[in-house]
Write a protein that binds this DNA or RNA. Structure first.
Lengths: 129, 129, 129, 129
DNA sequence: GTGGTCTAGACCACT
DNA sequence: GTGGTCTAGACCACC
């Protein structure tokens, strides 16, 4: 698992996003214990304080909670996770559609392109880049 | 028309993207003469050198060309513009679908969400800006 | 009965306050024998030395007295207890009014808010715990 | 203006509370510019990072906002300030009544004591201690 | 070992 | 000069 941090945006923001994804996508499960701040930080190649800041952010949003001296845990309320997933999904769709609109792509063309990309993917093309 | 530059990513990259959009979306037309580097830079509120770098980038990709002493012009070959438009559109779709895939959204859910966002937009909700 | 000790303030101070409350509020009665230091400490989940320090403090203020070999007893002079109760009550009121004054709340607003809180409590809202 | 920080509770929390009070009590006014992080920190005798953390907290709650490179400003929406004031006031009342309840003081006795304290204050006694 | 907090000092971009 | 971010290293209390 690589972290792919770029130095253009605040690292702690990228950490938050990345961990959110890992929770939402099922890499972490509700109730799971997260690695310790120090381990997590070293895994991501950042300073423990930076990871601490990211985790505090996640705590503020209710995704993780800390049981002092025992570590940090993913919320065990699946609805919080589902809620975040849906929020993120909708945000992505909105940003995406706005970008396409600026390119002059309407609804039909968007749907068409999506089908094309899915077709290609189904025939073994890779997604990412 | 505001330029909305953020200081997180290299300015010239943002300028390139923005001008690409302006060409592709029809704000600039094939054969149009671009403002002078100096004017363009002052309009965007950036240093002329930065704008220069952005325009050089656009030249490299064939979107604009310099006719010495007469200034810079948008390519008069519509197919180049259409090509860019389609390339950008497809890129956006691929990136978007990859993000959604990471969230665990399949094709059907994506289509559903897109319809929802279009519905909302039709009822007066703003997109992102 | 939980002890709710927080690690922010010296433990023994919190014990003193808590036992004062238990005496003043009638949980312990005049002349009652207190549990042994060891039992009391284990009940509160603290080190016996810490409890010892707390009890010494209470002895200094005349609330409890040691009868050698027989253990520690709550004072059998009800006026001492009543005196403490009134002292604590007045202290709380003074500190409270000072805080409210800093917020710009005058006498009338304070009385109004107190009535509101009592109203809410009467309708089943919990206070603080 | 002294800061009276005690080392028992997180300093940044105390800074938040103190600045909240200063805003709510009218020492800072809506739209006022706060001292720079560095100045503010040195005035309070803390590390700039600690002050930064406190101000970030205040920003999160909407009390102050930062106009990048221009400094931080108190919100110019008086209703936010009034809202905070009322929230704090009610909290204090609740905590106070709960404490008094534990002492066995009912509503009437509380009101009586408040009047006594106000009487004393009116005759020149000091509040605080 | 855990998390939480604080400090000191640095760099960046903007103006 | 402003705020924002990051790092390194320290201390504390709890278990």
């Amino acid at each position: 698992m690589t972290w792919n941090l770029d130095s253009q945006r605040p690292i702690y923001v990228q950490l938050v996003e990345r961990i959110q994804y890992d929770i939402v996508s099922g890499h972490f499960h509700p109730g799971d214990r997260l690695p310790s701040v120090r381990d997590f930080a070293s895994e991501a190649g950042v300073n423990p304080n930076t990871m601490q800041k990211a985790l505090a952010e996640l705590e503020r949003s209710g995704l993780v909670s800390t049981q002092c001296t025992a570590g940090r845990f993913i919320t065990d309320d699946p609805s919080v996770i589902t809620g975040l997933r849906n929020t993120l999904a909708k945000q992505h769709v909105q940003v995406f559609i706005e970008k396409m609109r600026k390119l002059g792509c309407g609804r039909d063309e968007i749907l068409e392109l999506i089908d094309i990309v899915f077709e290609e993917a189904a025939h073994g093309h890779s997604f990412g880049m």
